[in-house]
Design a binder for these strands. Sequence first.
DNA 1: GTGAAAGCGCTAACAA
DNA 2: TTGTTAGCGCTTTCAC
Lengths: 339, 339
Amino acid sequence: MRTHSEITIHHLATELKISASTVSRALNDNKRISENTRRIVQQKALEMGYRPNVLAANLRSRRTRTIGVVVPRIDRHFFSSAISGIEDYAWTKGFNVIISQSNDLLVKEINCVQTLYNNRVDGLIISISMQTDQDKHLRLFSDNHIPILFFDRFCPTIESDRIVVDDFNSGYKITRHLMERGCRRIAHIAGPELLNIYKARKAGYIKALESEGIAVDDRYIEVSGLTNEEGKQAFARLMSLPNPPDGVFCGNDTTALVALEYCQEHNLKVPEEVALIGFSDEPFSAVITPSLSTVRQPGFEMGFLAAQKIIHRIQNSKSVIPFEEIVLPTQLIIRASSK
Amino acid sequence: MRTHSEITIHHLATELKISASTVSRALNDNKRISENTRRIVQQKALEMGYRPNVLAANLRSRRTRTIGVVVPRIDRHFFSSAISGIEDYAWTKGFNVIISQSNDLLVKEINCVQTLYNNRVDGLIISISMQTDQDKHLRLFSDNHIPILFFDRFCPTIESDRIVVDDFNSGYKITRHLMERGCRRIAHIAGPELLNIYKARKAGYIKALESEGIAVDDRYIEVSGLTNEEGKQAFARLMSLPNPPDGVFCGNDTTALVALEYCQEHNLKVPEEVALIGFSDEPFSAVITPSLSTVRQPGFEMGFLAAQKIIHRIQNSKSVIPFEEIVLPTQLIIRASSK
DNA sequence: GTGAAAGCGCTAACAA
DNA sequence: TTGTTAGCGCTTTCAC
């Protein structure tokens, strides 16, 4: 329950015997106001403990200086880093950030997006859920000309800015590396094909095999939800093949971790008997034993850049800026698990 | 730039030849409205693609159904878990969450808090920065009777709800465990005394020593900012003492990790020559070698509970609910680094 | 159960 | 440079 004694611009106005609009202008550093009034007003505002009501200003001006963010899970390192980057940049531009998580559920994602729309955010930064196979909820934004920017996981049917990493090339590099270190039977535990990132990584894997004239063997490709359980099962299936792989490109670091556990339980030497590579460079990857080869995605930078691009678009909404896909390079980090 | 064709309750009203107030009531499931009109209105709203303008509703009703959150850093696992918990619960109650990070800087924290106030959030959940040694910015909330809830790191001079873990007892348990496994010279790398959590952990450490009649030796207590650099330096100082410790209680897991690195570089056997224990149970702690003993703090649960308590308080603002300090138990996890 | 009227606190034409 | 006026879209008395 807020007290009724909130100071408004009208209080300042009567107190200073000027009009409310002048107060408003002075407070917003409007150009057509005398330096003197500005000073007086701002001084008085401080003195009376005036707090602007952003709600009212937003309602009137039809801008909220707020960007909405939807990620699958806040507590995943890649996403929290990205959010950190978004927050940091938005901050410097006086923008607020509303964050919500879809928990990788389409229904929740739809709900998040609609809530953000209802809150009249000026733009939407989103990394879609694993289940997202429709775009109606996103059209709510694009149809109303509110900027959307996808990062990492995007929806291919919506025209918009995107910031992604070079997943294809990453998959390619990983596989080439495994081949170069002598692996002959390289398997891949892929994520759901619905997502561009997993499709691209897998395509890179296949391209690399083909570049060496190696036939793609479907038994060496497992598609899974990349949860701990599914990952472990997938890896177990691979290692139970008549000719088990001697190198496995895992869809992410956690899958590589459970693979590592499997190897320890079954006395398989890593990387001697089977080399492992993950994806994302989770904080644990560098410090486990054996340390995990992986691909670093610049989470913070992606978020920072995302905020930069969308805010630029918001602030230049009159001009027609062509949509852009920014592909950031990744870094293959070779550690003990594939040395 | 939003199109001007936004559907409002007035459009629905004229379309249905009823008043806007009736539309409003029907949409908000107000009790004194006929089941029939409610159905008709909601049907029409769907049909016309009506989207409530939350801004306008909030301005008028003086409630935003939004809670503000300030944490030191979003990308720290403990905090992102807590945020996840807050978000999950808030979600079920139709509350929004605005998240901001102080980067452990007082100035930024002040700015965050003020921005959240200006946005008229209904409540504030905060874990204060390492620098926070004043409470003026927080009084903005408490003075205006807007609920504040601290979690983990609190400001002792503000009366409010708090959700903390039992840091004192955790420090005690850690130290007792080290003693019981035979450590004779137990050191502690503590965090800044400004924060209740570090003070309490250190107090628990001292209490445990005293319980066995062991004199507290100040040279065995390092106070640091717990960054990687400071932590490593602190650990190096400890190990350079004439009588280096054979057990170290590190202020957090990352400090324990750099300590572990130091030991590997200097060929010190862990836990044989020096046992290590961290704090927080970061994701990497279970999977490094040797695995790290630590204390688990229930981040998600704390966040969930925080959201629960503050929303309850928001929704019962007329009734006087006494402030409460909820102390959650922690779990001592003994792993290889102290076995 | 429904409607009319009055704002919430602010911004932005348009005047002066 | 400043003031006047008119709302932004919604909720909420107060009537009926």
